[in-house]
């Protein structure tokens, strides 16, 4: 326990502005090694947008994202945005570092999607196997003529292991989209794990699950965290799940961070309760 906390993800003053709408406003947060950190907030609070910024889908309007100590994304309002910028801290950053999602994944950040995005025409097995392609060292010739058999076999083995682990062994050869919803979610996690990440971003993993499945999911998340030495950053609406698994919680409302702390602190935070239940007055 005396180990110093090692930072994995450091998000600093990130603002994401679409036209005149500020979806994420000056968000700063940290995920340390081995932690499960949750991001919660009402619908439309900007949680998924924050994920999309971290994974390179969107380039932030302003701010910086660091992963394992290296700056992976940075931007400041430029061009037209310089005049129209509605956020804060515009003067803090001078670089513009862009990374496409595939490069972010290669660095070791894997994610799942809120609206499940499996490869529809592929089997469960192929869906997981795809994620091993990015580490493949074979060029297109040796891959075509099967000269990378060893690597291919190792990848297949890994994919099968992951499928077994998420309990889909019997369904390995069925089309991914023919699985029931809960299993599709687990498959998405298996696929993300196949990229061998050190940080896993889960976007509403329990959406559409029944209480029993949600309980299992909580166990499952803790287990993969230990087994793969992961840090996990999760967006979720199921409060039971969040409160039981997370070490720390960030609360987002209208793009702004309104609270952060341990589950107990958040549960008793009046601002959070107001944001979720409404205060009865309009602001």
């Amino acid at each position: 326990m005396a180990e110093p906390r090692e930072n994995v993800l450091h998000v600093e003053n990130v603002t994401m502005q679409f036209g005149g709408v500020v979806a994420v406003n000056n968000l700063s947060l940290d995920v340390d090694k081995g932690e499960i950190v949750a991001l919660i907030g009402p619908n439309g609070a900007g949680k998924t947008t924050a994920f999309n910024v971290i994974t390179g889908v969107y380039q932030p309007t302003n701010g910086r994202v660091q992963f394992q100590g290296d700056t992976i994304i940075e931007n400041h309002p430029r061009g037209k945005m310089r005049k129209n910028y509605l956020g804060e801290n515009a003067e803090l950053y001078s670089n513009s570092i862009v990374r496409t999602p595939d490069r972010i994944t290669k660095l070791g950040i894997a994610r799942t999607f809120q609206n499940i995005r499996l490869f529809k025409a592929m089997t469960v097995f192929e869906n997981v196997l795809i994620a091993t392609h990015m580490r493949s060292e074979a060029n297109v010739f040796s891959a075509t003529f099967g000269l990378n058999r060893r690597e291919e076999m190792a990848n297949r083995e890994l994919a099968m292991e992951l499928i077994e682990m998420v309990g889909l062994k019997d369904e390995a050869d069925v089309l991914a989209t023919s699985l029931p919803y809960g299993k599709q979610r687990r498959l998405e996690i298996a696929r993300a794990l196949a990229t061998k990440p050190s940080l896993l971003l889960l976007d509403e993993p329990a959406a559409g699950m029944n209480p029993q499945e949600t309980d299992d999911l909580a166990d499952f998340i803790c287990r993969i965290k230990a087994a793969f030495h992961l840090s996990i950053f999760v967006i979720e609406h199921h409060m039971d799940l969040i409160m039981s698994i997370s070490d720390r919680i960030y609360v987002l409302n209208f793009g702004k961070l309104i609270a952060q702390g341990t589950p107990e602190e958040i549960q008793n935070n009046q601002i959070v309760i107001d944001a979720y239940l409404g205060t009865g007055k309009t602001n």
Partner: peptide, 16 residues
């Protein structure tokens, strides 16, 4: 095939 099925997911799988 991954790119054909879902570009966003393919990119998230590290495919350029």
């Amino acid at each position: 095939k991954a790119v054909r099925d879902d570009e966003v997911a393919a990119e998230a799988m590290g495919i350029n």
